[in-house]
């Protein structure tokens, strides 16, 4: 049995629901760090950045699921919905910290979204993710039908790309980190354009619809 099969066999026994739990606990823990002064003397900005970064990291993981299966046979597809919804939770937390704790007024929020392109695209990405989060359940897949649901969830691609550009754009100077994320996102999206090998046979049939 090769490594992929062994991994797939092992993960089959792991449920996906702990992902939600870990995500929520992590977000809450970061918030508590901020409240208790453990994120430095400027916790609002620190929390904003931490939530945003975790969101981007989880979104990169979500984008990696399909190429991983196509190119290595390792299937983490059963965790993808949980990861996607968790990522959205962090995007929402990132947005709320920015809007409520940082800007503190509707006029400022509106002004910033209109005036600053990096915020405009970040907000755009957030809006794109909302319908995806809402339809991340079996009932929605049934209602929309698999094909329409998959088409809708292709919004993930522009949303994550905009999120990575948002990161590159907001930093001062040219630090490497945001470019690494942008590079990873572009790489994972580009992999989808490469003619695929025949997907390695999955060891377990999946109940949920999958989008590629």
């Amino acid at each position: 049995m090769d490594i992929a099969q062994r991994l797939n066999r092992a993960t089959r026994r792991v449920p996906a629901w702990p992902v939600y739990l870990i995500g929520a606990a992590w977000a809450g823990w970061l918030f508590w760090l901020g409240v208790s002064g453990q994120l430095g003397p400027e916790p609002i900005n620190a929390l904003e950045r931490r939530y945003g970064l975790v969101a981007l990291q989880v979104l990169v993981a979500v984008l990696a699921v399909t190429p991983l299966r196509v190119w290595t046979g390792i299937s983490l597809i059963k965790f993808r919905r949980a990861l996607g919804v968790t990522a959205f939770g962090f995007v929402l937390a990132h947005f709320l910290v920015w809007a409520v704790l940082d800007l503190q007024s509707l006029a400022r929020i509106g002004g910033e979204i209109v005036k600053r392109p990096y915020i405009t695209i970040g907000f755009g990405a957030f809006l794109m993710l909302i319908p995806l989060a809402i339809t991340s359940n079996n009932a929605s897949i049934r209602k929309l039908g698999g094909a329409a649901w998959r088409r809708l969830h292709k919004l993930t691609y522009p949303a994550v790309l905009l999120g990575a550009i948002h990161f590159v754009w907001l930093v001062k100077g040219y630090p490497m980190e945001p470019f690494l994320y942008l590079g990873a996102v572009i790489f994972l999206l580009a992999l989808r354009l490469v003619p695929k090998r025949k997907p390695v046979a999955r060891t377990a049939p999946q109940a949920t619809a999958t989008a590629r």
Binding site: G34, G37, E42, I44, G111, R116
Partner: peptide
Amino acid sequence: PRWSQASERRIGGGI
């Protein structure tokens, strides 16, 4: 272009 300069936050006020 990145930050509104109309207002600011004093460091030390907490979250």
